[in-house]
Lab assay of single mutants.
Amino acid sequence: MVQRGSKVRILRPESYWFQDVGTVASVDQSGIKYPVIVRFEKVNYSGINTNNFAEDELVEVEA
């Protein structure tokens, strides 16, 4: 279970941040499909630095 402030590695192959490390900004408990919002240092092609992920697409590298 990841929690706010954890450092996580992204396992979603189609993601711009695949294999990159980001910080968990928040975790939604309402039961949505992609409840974990992760914030990154670098921006993607659209200038965005956050994205939603499912918990099984993340691996915690640092608490």
Rank of each mutant, 00 (worst) to 15 (best):
M1L: 11
M1G: 14
V2T: 05
V2C: 13
V2Q: 04
Q3N: 08
R4F: 05
R4I: 15
G5M: 04
G5L: 04
G5H: 03
S6F: 05
S6P: 03
K7R: 13
V8Y: 00
V8R: 02
R9Y: 05
R9V: 07
I10C: 09
I10R: 05
L11F: 04
L11T: 06
L11R: 04
R12D: 06
E14G: 13
Y16Q: 03
W17Y: 03
W17A: 00
W17H: 01
W17C: 06
F18Q: 02
F18W: 06
F18R: 01
Q19C: 14
D20S: 10
D20V: 10
V21T: 07
V21D: 01
V21W: 05
G22L: 09
G22C: 06
V24C: 07
A25H: 11
A25F: 11
A25L: 15
A25S: 10
S26I: 07
S26H: 14
S26T: 07
S26L: 09
V27K: 04
D28Q: 08
D28E: 09
D28H: 06
D28C: 12
Q29V: 11
Q29P: 12
G31Q: 11
G31S: 08
G31D: 12
I32F: 07
K33A: 12
K33G: 07
K33T: 08
K33W: 05
K33S: 08
Y34A: 05
Y34P: 02
V36Y: 14
V36P: 00
V36N: 00
V38P: 01
V38S: 00
V38G: 00
V38E: 00
R39Y: 12
R39G: 03
R39F: 12
R39K: 12
F40N: 00
E41R: 09
K42A: 06
K42G: 05
K42F: 08
V43F: 15
V43C: 14
V43E: 11
V43W: 11
N44C: 11
N44A: 06
N44T: 07
Y45S: 15
Y45E: 15
G47N: 05
T50I: 11
N51F: 11
F53K: 04
F53D: 00
A54S: 10
A54R: 12
E55Y: 15
E55K: 09
D56E: 11
D56N: 12
D56A: 08
D56Q: 07
D56V: 07
E57I: 02
L58P: 01
V59D: 09
V59M: 13
E60H: 09
E60T: 13
E60W: 09
V61Y: 06
V61R: 02
V61L: 09
E62T: 12
E62D: 12
